[in-house]
Amino acid sequence: MQNGPSTIELLAAVRAFVEDHAMPELEGHAAFHARVAANTLAIIERELEQGPAAAANERARLMALLNAKGSLEALNRQLAEALRSGDMDLETPGLREHLLATTIDKVSIDQPSYSGLKSAFQARR
């Protein structure tokens, strides 16, 4: 077992360094890329925290929707094919809810303050 601090704690420490110490020393392009780097570390922190549950829920929904088993990627491929061929569409029971829930989880990791996320929450209600 790897002892602490945890991955998330280490990431938070690196991000605090970039934000509080490195960024104020930088200008122009370098400052911009440092901001992007700090945001990227925040994405990784959120993915470590929320990713496993999001993936498990997504997989469970896909198995029910497709009545199939397989890896998350294989199930997503199957759904993509069904949508491309027209075998499934927005009329398919559970599809809309699945796509909304999956995408809300994805954006909550990638960009939790994104404006479109708020509208999606309202749509789900």
């Binding site: 990638d110 960009q111 994104y114 479109g116 999606a120």
Partner: peptide
């Protein structure tokens, strides 16, 4: 190899939520 080019991939999901807001309401 910039971090900006790598990170922009994670903005694709914002268009997925926008697409659902536009066509799946």
């Amino acid at each position: 190899r910039s971090v900006e080019r790598a990170a922009i991939g994670r903005r694709s999901s914002e268009t997925e939520i926008d697409l659902l807001n536009l066509i799946a309401k």
